[in-house]
Simulated assay, not measured.
Amino acid sequence: MLVGLVLGISLINLYLFADTWAKLAIAAYIVVQIVQTFPFCYTCDLIREDCESLAVAIFHSNWKGSSRRYRSSLIYFLQNAQRTISFSAGSVFPICLNTNIRVAKLAFSVVTFVKQVKN
């Protein structure tokens, strides 16, 4: 949410108050802000996908010919691996690429709204 707020304020500053050199600096800042949040969101998506495929990998392991202790541990891990992992920001927003894109869209929507109000 904070990233969306920063992007929105930066875009409002870009369209309403900045001169040519300030526009260049603000545009670079906006690109850096989006690039800064993208790897974290992408990594969270990769971890979520790996955790979803973990249950399948555990099930397809060679558990039939193993010891009873190994199988009971495997059942425990299989039950826990079937629960989905969810990364969230402050238990409010999920951290994923979709959220990152929605925040960027929200910032541009705020700018569009401000431009329409100004005209």
Rank of each mutant, 00 (worst) to 15 (best):
M1K: 11
M1N: 06
M1Y: 07
M1R: 06
V3T: 14
V3Y: 14
G8R: 02
G8P: 01
I9F: 11
I9T: 10
S10I: 03
L11C: 06
I12Y: 11
N13I: 03
L14M: 05
Y15H: 07
Y15I: 01
Y15F: 07
L16E: 09
L16C: 01
F17C: 00
A18N: 04
T20Y: 11
K23Y: 03
L24A: 01
L24E: 06
V32G: 12
V32Y: 14
Q33G: 08
Q36K: 11
Q36S: 14
T37D: 07
T37E: 10
F38I: 01
P39L: 02
P39F: 03
F40N: 12
F40H: 13
F40P: 00
C41V: 07
C41F: 14
Y42M: 02
T43H: 15
T43V: 10
C44W: 09
D45G: 03
D45C: 09
I47K: 09
I47V: 15
R48Y: 11
C51D: 13
E52Y: 12
S53H: 02
A55T: 13
A57E: 07
I58N: 02
F59A: 12
F59Q: 15
N62Q: 14
N62P: 14
W63F: 05
K64R: 14
G65T: 08
S66L: 01
S67F: 05
R68N: 06
R68G: 03
R69A: 08
Y70V: 09
S73V: 00
L74H: 10
I75T: 07
F77T: 01
L78A: 13
L78Y: 15
A81Q: 11
Q82T: 14
Q82W: 11
R83P: 00
T84D: 11
T84M: 08
I85N: 15
S86Q: 13
F87K: 05
F87A: 02
S88R: 15
S88E: 05
S88F: 08
G90C: 02
G90Q: 01
G90R: 13
S91I: 07
S91M: 01
S91C: 06
V92L: 12
F93C: 02
F93G: 00
F93D: 01
P94I: 01
P94D: 05
I95R: 05
I95N: 04
I95T: 05
C96I: 00
C96S: 15
N100T: 13
R102S: 08
R102F: 10
A104L: 05
A104V: 14
L106S: 12
F108I: 06
F108E: 10
S109P: 00
S109V: 04
V110G: 00
V111P: 00
T112G: 06
T112E: 05
F113P: 01
K115Y: 09
V117T: 09
K118A: 12
K118W: 12
K118S: 06
K118C: 02
N119A: 05
